[in-house]
Amino acid sequence: MKIKEVIVVEGKDDTVKIKLAVDADTIETRGSAVDESVIEQIKHAQAARGVIIFTDPDYPGQRIRSIISEQVPGCRHAFLPKEEAIEKLGRGVGVEHASVESIRKALRDAQYMDEDAKEQITTEDLVSAGLIGGPTAKSRRESLGIKLKIGYVNGKQLYKRLIMFQITREQFAAALKEVLEEELR
């Protein structure tokens, strides 16, 4: 599988794993600070070929994704479910620990975020669905994030991602229905 866009990852181990999964070029942020020279490389790549941001499903990965998104608009975003990115001994989480097939799937499902999307889903909808507050909120958000291909997020981030990815009420309702049905099994 050849990827035209340049894939932004966190480190060398991520690059090695990406290259096992697909034929692609990468830019490594080398940590969550993301210095200006890396941002300039990403801007150049975005203008020339496009960029897919593919960071780890953890807080530092989300921080890097946010920094790049703010400074380099129009990137696509690939997400791995956390359980597919956990090291065999459970000591680490990251792209480098994911299977080749999980990486390929995440890259196939990469989406554009639209920061200017119109509000479609309200925070009240999220509370009513048991996605914010309550004993099952975290597990429901995890399942919903997988179904909608937007990654795992906390309640506040969930709202923002639903809006950025322009998830419609219908898409939200269908995914939530699947999540609730799985809970009953």
Rank of each mutant, 00 (worst) to 15 (best):
M164P: 00
D56F: 07
M113L: 13
I121R: 05
K118H: 12
P81R: 08
S32Q: 11
K43R: 14
S32K: 11
Q71R: 15
I86E: 14
V179D: 02
D125N: 15
G134E: 11
Q62W: 07
I7L: 04
D58V: 08
E83S: 12
K2M: 10
Q120D: 13
T15L: 01
A110Q: 06
R140K: 12
G61P: 09
E178I: 12
R76L: 14
S102E: 01
R76D: 03
Q157T: 11
K12H: 08
R76W: 06
K147Y: 08
G130H: 05
D114Y: 15
Y59C: 00
G133H: 05
E40I: 08
G31E: 06
G74Q: 08
K88I: 12
I42T: 02
K147F: 07
S128D: 15
V100M: 09
D125P: 02
V6N: 01
R185Y: 08
D35A: 06
K156C: 04
K2D: 13
K138W: 06
A174F: 04
E124G: 13
V6F: 01
E101W: 01
R185Q: 11
P57A: 04
Q166R: 15
Q62T: 09
S37V: 10
G74K: 04
K4L: 09
R91T: 07
Q71Y: 08
V8I: 04
V38D: 06
R91N: 10
L176T: 02
K105D: 07
S32R: 05
T136N: 12
E142G: 05
D23L: 03
I121C: 11
